[in-house]
């Protein structure tokens, strides 16, 4: 496979995953703000901006911190790279560059997601935007399905590799920001639980049902952290992403007949997660742990680029 093709597939995976993540985040935050018994208001929207690392860009836009403004900013605003539309645009751009490597079905899903926004020029109210977000989720699900139906070859492996690297980053960020917001320094983890707030986190990573299956003792922050951080059974958990990164790199190594620094780094990371207990992490500082995870993930990203000669 051409190095450039591999790079485009990898980035396609990353951008599509990011678009999907932002879509979930927007949706969960709207629910939190609109549907819960005690609307979270500004704080919820500020945290959504924090998770997507777009606070500065939002401030620069001069818009008020309202539901409508943040939803539009994260969904349809083309002026900054952290919106769904820009991620989809970047995903489609990469997909176009590797059009030959994708099945028609997979391409149609990406193109379909992009077309949802392509013809929108006027701003929408948040209900309409939520409709769009829903369609985006449907198309990305369609893409996932299409990728699963494609040949299990290097093409799908690089797309998935981009997805899991992005996923590890997104989930770590989500956990980091929400944890800070919900449990300001000094507050004990066993304190009163804001049910709606914690449910939002689970919704963002599609883990509401999974949580009920895995934990019997109601909604506990420590359990939510455990699920998102350490339970590899959950595809969107950090552990799940780390696990899958190793197996994808293994498959690539098998098909290429050789390994490199990214393989070693991913395996090392995997080994360490196996021996990490959530309780210890919380005790010794979740924030530091998550920060280190994000940095390490960036290093692995760079190692992948070097190993497969992306540049």
């Amino acid at each position: 496979m051409l190095s450039r093709t591999a790079a485009s597939l990898y980035w396609l995976g990353r951008y599509l995953e990011r678009a999907d993540f932002i879509a979930r985040l927007v949706e969960a935050t709207v629910r939190l703000d609109v549907l819960s018994s005690r609307p979270a208001g500004e704080a919820a929207w500020r945290s959504a901006l924090a998770v997507t690392d777009t606070e500065a860009a939002f401030e620069a836009s001069g818009a008020p911190l309202t539901r409508e403004a943040v939803v539009a900013f994260l969904s349809t605003d083309t002026s900054h790279p952290g919106s769904i539309v820009r991620c989809l645009h970047a995903a489609r751009d990469n997909a176009r560059a590797v059009r030959t490597a994708l099945s028609r079905e997979a391409w149609s899903a990406i193109n379909g997601a992009w077309l949802i926004f392509d013809r929108r020029v006027t701003p929408l109210d948040s209900t309409a935007t939520l409709g769009l977000v829903d369609k985006v989720k449907a198309e990305t699900r369609g893409f996932e399905g299409a990728v699963h139906r494609m040949l299990r070859n290097q093409t799908t492996l690089f797309i998935r590799l981009g997805q899991v690297i992005e996923r590890a980053d997104n989930t770590a960020r989500l956990l980091d920001v929400k944890y800070h917001l919900l449990l300001p320094a000094g507050e004990s983890i066993g304190g009163t639980v804001d049910r709606d707030q914690w449910t939002t986190i689970l919704q963002t990573v599609s883990a509401v049902t999974a949580y009920r299956w895995l934990y019997n003792d109601g909604l506990q922050p420590a359990n939510v952290i455990d699920l998102l951080l350490s339970r590899a059974e959950l595809p969107r958990s950090v552990a799940g992403a780390i696990d899958e990164t190793v197996s994808i790199l293994n498959s690539l190594a098998k098909s290429l007949g050789g390994q490199g620094e990214a393989d070693r780094m991913a395996r090392g990371r995997h080994q360490r997660t196996l021996h990490t207990r959530t309780g210890d992490v919380i005790a010794s500082g979740l924030h530091q742990h998550l920060e280190a995870l994000i940095v390490e993930n960036d290093q692995l990203h760079a190692a992948i680029g070097r190993q497969f000669k992306f540049n």
Binding site: M1, L2, R4, A6, L256, G257, G258, K309
Partner: peptide
């Protein structure tokens, strides 16, 4: 074009392998 390199008058493409 960036995928191709010429070396010793032979054309190659740059692949992950």
């Amino acid at each position: 074009a960036a995928d191709l390199v010429v070396d010793d008058d032979v054309v190659y493409m740059r692949t992950i392998a």
